[in-house]
Amino acid sequence: MSRIQDKARALIASKMKLEEKEITPEKHLFNDLGADSLDFVELSMMLEREFNVKFSEDEMANAKTVGDLYELIEKYTKKS
């Protein structure tokens, strides 16, 4: 697991008040982690601040799993 994924996992766990071990790539943000739409937007804001990136709303809205988020963050951090 990359450093980026480590950091993202810690943030997701903190936001969702879960153990880091529960945050695995296949987990669905809404169905498995219990996020609601506000959690999702707050998570997006936290990740953008942590990684100093600005996601496209469409791409972010299409992220359904933890793995999708990792991919998106890695894509955007490579851009910057």
Binding site: V41, S44, M45, E57, M60, A61
Partner: peptide
């Protein structure tokens, strides 16, 4: 306005 995504505003 701190953050905005789609129909959610913080």
């Amino acid at each position: 306005l701190t953050y905005h995504m789609r129909n959610i505003y913080i």
